[in-house]
């Protein structure tokens, strides 16, 4: 009920606080959620990936997250510094369905907030709620260590409720993954992201520097 009520308030919120204000609100919610969930430490990538699969990490609140262990991200020395992860169903899809049945159209401010986020923060949002959970993931990564190394989360691609997609080409180039490959992942997943060791020297970054 609360989620549907919030959707019906987006328009009002955006009119009062502006779309920029709504983005700030949602980013603060994402940060606060990550902070309240606490810190985690894993011995290595296998233990982190198993914890994720078993729903024991903060990331598990989003639902069915699959570690794509065939897609390891390596650094310039060929060491594994992260993996690609994929969320089966967009966290807001059930809410969108509930809104459609109980209220009707999603407010226009939804798209306006996403557009402003894409222009002013980064071009990865499809709906206004992408702001919350993309920020949440970034902040959660800061609270987790794998082999004593802090992590970083990079948004790669997402598919919206109506089928629209966003692919972060710069981020894909940085970690050395072909955008067409990620597009094919979107056939089966709603959201794709990478979790990496913070500060890792990635091949894509070296190429850009050269």
């Amino acid at each position: 009920m609360l989620d549907v009520a919030l959707v019906s308030l987006i328009q009002d919120m955006s009119e009062k606080a502006g779309v920029e204000g709504t983005i700030q609100y949602w980013e603060r919610v994402g940060e606060s959620l990550a902070m309240r969930m606490g810190k985690e430490a894993y011995m290595g990538w296998p233990s982190f990936n198993v914890a994720l699969r078993e729903g024991r990490t903060a990331y598990s609140i989003e639902g069915d997250v699959t570690p794509l262990t065939d897609l390891a991200v390596t650094d310039v020395d060929g060491d594994v510094v992260g993996y690609i992860y994929a969320l089966k169903t967009c966290v807001f899809e059930p809410t969108m369905q509930r809104v459609r049945y109980s209220v009707g159209d999603v407010p226009q401010a939804d798209a306006a907030v996403a557009e402003e986020y894409n222009n002013s923060v980064k071009d990865t949002a499809i709906c206004n709620f992408c702001v919350i959970h993309q920020k949440f993931r970034e902040e959660v990564a800061k609270n987790i260590t794998v082999a004593d190394q802090p992590l970083e989360c990079v948004q790669l691609a997402d598919r919206g409720f109506k089928g629209e997609t966003k692919i972060a080409r710069d981020s894909l180039k940085r970690i050395g993954i072909n955008p067409e490959y990620v597009r094919s992942l979107l056939r089966n997943y709603a959201c794709v992201f990478a979790i990496l060791m913070k500060g890792a020297r990635l091949k894509g970054e070296e190429e850009v520097e050269e």
Binding site: L2, D3, A5, L6, V29, G30, S32, L33, R36, I61, E62, G63, T89, V91, F92, E93, P94, T95, R98, F129, I132, H133, F136
Partner: peptide, 11 residues
């Protein structure tokens, strides 16, 4: 209904 949405709404 997704837990993230509910918990985020409370926060």
């Amino acid at each position: 209904e997704n837990p993230l949405v509910d918990v985020a709404a409370y926060l």
